[in-house]
Amino acid sequence: MIEIRVDEEACNGCGLCVKDCPMGVFELKSSVSSPVHPENCMGCLSCHEICPAQALEHRGVVPCRRMYVSMKVCRMLNRVI
């Protein structure tokens, strides 16, 4: 099963992940997002893309092949990082 963690320090309580997730995985509790139904997560990671605080972490997600990422860019990034 997919495990979801929210960095409570980073989360600003905007609620975007709550609205975005089609599975109702998140709920806001005291202005912090909380994964109340992680068992319903299908690993689309659209919440990662929408979270302005990058506060989300998913474990156990099947990664899709990312062919759109250019090897040249990756090589450059690897050199810089």
Binding site: P22, M42, G43, C44, L45, S46, H48, E49, V62
Partner: peptide, 10 residues
């Protein structure tokens, strides 16, 4: 199409 994401779509 129910939902689209960078890693999977439903």
């Amino acid at each position: 199409i129910i939902h689209t994401g960078p890693n999977a779509c439903l």
